[in-house]
């Protein structure tokens, strides 16, 4: 990314806590990242790593039980920076940003639409709220958007109900609904997980072309390393509520440093590559983020851990050059050694 550009959003030390009878659940523990205009950041991780809660914290739509800490600095169109976490989650200001400046698409398009209203009227909702009160104009804007996302025969489709749409078409309609206000940032939470491969490919390509056209930034949340490779400029790998490694897609895929990233990359079979007899696999399962002690979250499953260090001290994030950052004691030692020999 060019140096002169200002990030559209900067997440600083974001934490999400949930108080439970059994103790403190910390699904997100100090997440930092920033996204620049026109860029796609992939947030990758397995279920329970906190990636969805992170995205919902940005929009302030997390469950009431969750408390968010840290800062989420959003730069609006007038170049004014606001901390989204300081805004009242049900207040006027956040509602002016939500849906207009930042919008979100979800995994299950079937659930995202109400079965009671036509697709058109649901796409209109955001337009009428943020852009115009004129229903005729809103219809025009919606139709234009529906055409843009490749819904053929948009005029007819406009008056149809969600059950008359197929999964792929519905996801397109969902994207149209999210983009109708031309947001500056789009959060896509597993947008293609529920879709078939051929439909998935269409939707991903659609998102890419719309991004070029509208210049928006995308936060792309997924567990699928294939779609990330296809979609994202930069990748952040999350584990147990922390980002363990970030870098450009090439840095992460070709030169993973964190043991978790390495394991993750080894776990997927790259189609078309020579068949290894066995896949690399990470032993054990993701622990529950309950009453966590200091130390690296990956300690228990790591094959490369340093006793007495990794389970005692939180690893700090170090820069490996360029945008490639990693939070690992082992990597830090290796980097220090290299610096000495040089």
């Amino acid at each position: 990314m060019s140096e002169t550009k200002q990030p559209i959003i900067q997440v600083k030390n974001l934490g999400v806590n949930i108080k439970m009878d059994e103790g403190l659940l910390t699904p997100v523990r100090g997440v930092d990242f920033e996204i620049y205009p026109g860029e796609t950041l992939g947030l990758v991780g397995e279920s329970g790593c906190g990636k969805s809660l992170t995205s919902k914290a940005i929009l302030g739509i997390n469950d009431k039980k969750c408390t968010s800490t840290g800062e989420i600095l959003f730069r609006d169109e007038t170049d004014k920076v606001v901390d989204l976490l300081k805004l009242n989650p049900r207040g006027k200001e956040i509602r002016a940003i939500r849906g207009k400046q930042i919008s979100m698409i979800f995994q299950e398009p079937m659930v995202a639409f109400s079965p009671m209203y036509t697709i058109g009227s649901q796409i209109n909702e955001a337009t009428l709220l943020h852009i115009t009160r004129d229903k005729k104009k809103a219809r025009e804007i919606s139709l234009e958007m529906m055409k843009m996302v490749g819904i053929a025969n948009a005029e007819k489709r406009y008056d149809q109900y969600p059950h008359e749409f197929s999964g792929g078409m519905l996801q397109r309609a969902l994207i149209a609904m999210a983009l109708v206000c031309r947001p500056r940032m789009l959060i896509a939470d597993e947008p293609t997980t529920a879709l078939d491969v051929t439909i998935q490919a269409q939707i991903l390509e659609l998102m890419q072309s719309l991004q070029k056209e509208l210049g928006m930034a995308i936060l792309f949340i997924t567990h699928d390393l294939g779609t990330v490779a296809k979609m994202c400029d930069r990748v952040a790998v999350m584990y147990l509520g922390k980002i363990v490694e970030t870098g450009t897609a090439r840095e992460i895929y070709k030169n993973p440093q964190h043991p978790y990233t390495k394991g993750l990359m080894g776990s997927v079979h790259k189609i078309g590559s020579l068949k290894a007899d066995r896949l690399f696999s990470i032993e054990g399962t993701v622990p529950l983020a309950l009453n966590l002690q200091p130390g690296c979250g990956f300690y228990e499953r790591c094959g490369d851990r340093i006793e007495g260090v990794c389970n005692k001290i939180d690893p700090e994030t170090i820069n490996l050059g360029g945008t490639h950052c990693v939070a690992c004691h082992r990597c830090k030692r290796a980097a220090e050694k290299e610096a000495v020999t040089e």
Partner: peptide, 25 residues
Amino acid sequence: EALLSAVPVADPDVKMDRIPLQGEI
């Protein structure tokens, strides 16, 4: 052929040209 061309490969260097399928199942 169309199915294979749509598979996302976990490698940012591999860019397959997708063969577009018209319509839906």
